[in-house]
Design a binder for these strands. Structure first.
Lengths: 333, 333
DNA sequence: TTGAAAGCGCTAACAC
DNA sequence: GTGTTAGCGCTTTCAA
């Protein structure tokens, strides 16, 4: 890499002259500026980012900590973050907690050494369970701002981006009721997560709040260590009266449609299905899965924007931004 | 952040003493070492990564450039890379080219300023088409090593990690033939990619090389700007004699199963389906999609290993590592 | 209009 | 055993 010093030597001027010239500092003569810029272009000079970071005490890099990139939702959020970051001249360092508290602590720890200007985090499952937030507190204490998205901690004060999982789930259930569905079930493989709980609660609320509903909520909690297909098949066989399903995660809805087709259901006539998913996933089944789209990309964009804001004004009050969901009444509804 | 200087002041010793003590330098007395370490622990001292990077002229950070994180295959590769990187004390900066040449150039450009020690890249579609590799050449010229994975450029010399797409596809086709399938088709939405071409060629090779096969290859190229489901449905209706399908990408196999079920096919008896995908995708359909698993995670791990190797020995000859594929004869086969 | 010098935080060769 | 010093590449204040 070519440095300021190198350029200075070649032009027989001082390093500071070069630096100023490249920054169009009015102290420097037009002539010198053009000479310097030409040379810089010739040698394809790029200011050393690390040196700039050290000097400025900021890196223009944000750490993103997500449970897993293999979850399509988080991949989409990351996509949104990365896009927005790029536009604003920021880089993204990605870490995965795999839902493990210690892994998450390690991520924060490893990047809390000047590597990043702030953290965007979707809190790990174990962290939510054990309620251990010391690593976040440490970061915040060290003046490294945190923005939480989707998986947020109510008891921790920071900027947040969420969707209204409760309302989304409740509304979807209400839509099924409005459509005349009499026996609506709820299936989920994310019961342990806050968002999973909220979605289930939304469903229960809709069911219990409806005077025409006489039955108790019908729920299936999927065990991910066992075959999901057989669990769903057994569930449908044991509950033949079900005519509507809300799926809380982004795969079980698709699987349920496949299984139900096999079992002779006529979707959506004898069975309506709605899932928390996105367009690509919707496309995988016949009929296409009706989806509650969490607008993951938007969540990412918003999370980054809040961070940018925060970095520019460390004293502004903390905000919680709610991103709207989109309900697509596709074929399986 | 607390610095060496801060610690030095508190103990009334010099900065270098602190630095040496923290590095267990034998020049320093045991006593001082413990005193320093205790203080460091007390104040939770973390050496400033940026300063270390500037000093050492390396960042322990690798840039990963992929077409998109929304493609599950690349998400898996990234997962493998991140895991391996973490273990070795490296961070990952992720950039997305969105298959666009200029975006890819920009990524390389923006990180070729000391931000990263090397690049792991899956080349964008447009780059492959236009055969413009100047940005890679520039990086290599600047002594920033490049490891290409999956989407590699034959004419560019660097370390590479690939799978044998041709063989994988050919073998899968041969398996179908061996099973007695008489009319095997090939569907793909990635015809423009090198890997897509290789997969198609593998299929064609198997078909044409088999003396029992009398028909020409039957291929469907999916247009992603139109509805994939109807394209596949039309294809099946126009080719009712098809009894086996190879899907070259990671979604069309699942969709085809859904459609075929609807059309009354009895999978796998009247129609066998094999797709380039992974276990999670396989699980979405009934019956489960038989898959050619590209072992994406392994690709990522290997790519990172090659990079680590390269960083430790810039002069070793370039290698191309081939990662094995796994053929899972699941239900739809 | 230009240059010298200090300093960001760290490491390490070299004094003492 | 500890301290001084220089330097990584850059920015910026102050002096000339």
């Amino acid at each position: 890499m070519i440095t300021l010093k190198d350029l200075a030597k070649k032009l027989n001027v001082s390093v500071s002259t070069i630096s100023k010239a490249l920054h169009d500092n009015p102290e420097i003569s037009k002539e010198t500026i053009t000479r310097v810029k030409e040379l810089a272009k010739l040698y394809n000079y790029q200011p050393n980012k690390i040196a700039q970071s050290l000097k400025a005490n900021k890196t223009k890099t944000i750490g993103v900590i997500i449970p897993s990139i293999l979850n399509r939702f988080f991949a989409q959020v990351l996509f949104g973050i990365e896009k927005e970051a790029r536009v604003n001249g920021y880089n993204i360092i990605t870490c995965m907690s795999n839902e493990v508290l210690n892994k998450e602590k390690e991520c924060i720890q490893l990047l809390s050494n000047g590597s990043v200007d702030g953290f965007l985090v979707a809190v790990a499952e174990e962290t939510q369970k054990k309620k251990d937030f010391t690593h976040f507190e440490t970061a915040q204490f060290a003046k490294i701002p945190i923005v939480m998205f989707d998986r947020v901690i109510d008891d921790f004060i920071c900027d947040k981006v969420i969707i209204n999982d409760f309302e989304a789930s409740k509304n979807a259930t209400l839509e099924l009721l409005k459509k005349g569905k009499k026996n609506i079930a709820f299936i989920s493989s994310i019961d342990d997560l806050n968002v999973g709980k909220l979605r289930k609660q939304g469903y229960i609320d809709a069911i219990k709040g409806n005077p025409n509903v006489t039955y108790d909520p019908i729920t299936l909690t999927l065990n991910s260590s066992q075959d999901v297909q057989s669990q769903i098949a057994a569930f449908l066989k044991n509950n033949t009266h079900i005519d509507g399903v809300i799926s809380a995660d982004n795969v079980s809805g698709t699987i349920l449609i496949s299984i139900a087709n096999k079992l002779g259901y006529n979707i959506p006539n004898t069975l309506s299905v709605i899932g928390f998913a996105d367009n690509q996933i919707s496309n995988l089944s016949v009929p296409k899965l009706a989806i509650i789209n969490q607008n993951a990309e938007q969540i990412g964009e918003n999370a980054f924007s809040l961070m940018l804001n925060r970095l520019n004004d460390k004293t502004r009050p903390f905000v919680t931004k709610e991103v709207g969901i989109t309900f697509s009444k596709q074929e399986s509804f």
